[in-house]
Design a binder for these strands. Structure first.
Lengths: 223, 223
DNA sequence: GTCTATATCGGGATAGAC
DNA sequence: GTCTATCCCGATATAGAC
């Protein structure tokens, strides 16, 4: 608990960003929680925006390195043969679920990341795209090789859907409570549940793209 | 485009909330976009918080009524027999995808809704839970009847995962662009893709809950 | 119902002592 | 590296004329 000021600020910011969002979180809240002085943020990071970037960078870099290392290991073992989809899914999302299971800030961070992924805030999304570029390229290649029968565009959407399911998975029981009372699952169970679901979705029969022109009643624009 | 002031404010707020989030969106931005006076928000809605609620209410009430009507129709036709999972999924998520396909504010609203669902902001989440209570109860019952072999807790998680996939689906190409360049799909194609994925996930083999104690390398807490 | 003007507050950032 | 004090800005909300 008594890390240096810089780390305490990052921990506090991560937690408060998750709970209140970027804008609603003030530097005053952060420094109060971190038992640091208000001016310390600008001293250590230069600006609030730079602090946000650093909150992501310190964990995301590590996370994606783990993913690439996991893929390296799988591909070395396969000796050029295509991997099983299940292996690829497990290596990509497993690393994330494991981080989310980390009792320290890992869970908080993964929830924050999932929420941020769809936020339209220009500067955060550009930053994320850069951080992800390398790992995405590797996994796309691995998936395309493993699933040659799935059109690439179809696969990209399924990957996107998987990210959505994963994001809600780590966002956890808080959100789920809208569906009704439920226990917070232990991480192993959550991992198993999510993997079944993801593999099921990934391997589902391909859709008929020219499908039904679903009835479309007019939606109201005002009360 | 020349609706009354109240509607113009709701339209502008919906769009700006989606783009910038609740806190980053100021009443000044809203009234400027709506060609209304700054004081008009407080006159028509009383406060920013009440405005936020009204933005959700005006579309969500209708959306969930459609869902219940769709389920009523299916159950009437089935005459007491369990529905097919596919029918239930299509009626719940189909209504949403159709609203998202609406060229007016529907798409904006669905994106906003998906993002808000996992936001921890107390007051919005409580509000959403109330708005959803009736429809969730109905759909839970229908699913439990249709899938008696799936444990209820397992199903709730799968429902939650489906909501996540759906949320990312409507959040659309903006977020997907992190995965690489891709066309904005036409709504029919998106609908077909998502349904395949959701059904595949919902019907996946049940996970082994006592599964592997995934290796857990330590994650870093600071740079 | 719509405007202008303003009260009140709290934000990010910085200067400069220690 | 850490503090106090402060600048400057823009936020929500309201008062009161029209």
């Amino acid at each position: 608990m008594e890390a240096d000021t810089r780390s305490r600020i990052l921990d506090a910011a991560e937690s408060l960003f998750m709970e209140h969002g970027f804008d609603a979180t003030t530097l005053r809240m952060i420094t109060a929680e971190a038992h640091a002085n208000l001016a310390a943020v600008n001293y250590h990071f230069g600006s609030k925006e730079a602090l946000i970037e650093e909150v992501f960078r310190r964990r995301l870099t590590w996370l994606n390195e783990q993913r690439i290392a996991a893929l390296d290991a799988l591909e070395a073992e396969a000796q050029g043969a295509p991997l099983k989809p299940r292996q690829i899914v497990e290596s990509f999302f497993g690393v994330a679920i494991r981080m989310a299971a980390d009792s320290a800030g890992g869970r908080t961070f993964m929830r924050l990341l999932g929420r941020t992924y769809t936020e339209p805030s220009e500067f955060v999304r550009r930053f994320l795209a850069e951080e992800y570029a390398a790992v995405i390229a590797r996994y796309k290649a691995a998936f395309f090789k493993a699933l040659p029968d799935v059109p690439q565009e179809e696969f990209l959407w399924r990957f996107h859907f998987m990210m959505g399911a994963m994001s809600y998975a780590v966002s956890g029981a808080d959100a789920l409570r809208i569906l009704g009372p439920i226990d917070d699952p232990d991480p192993e169970a959550l991992y198993a549940r999510l993997m079944s679901f993801l593999i099921g979705g990934l391997r589902a029969p391909l859709p008929e793209i020219h499908s039904k022109p679903a009835r479309k009643p007019r939606s109201p624009r005002s009360a």
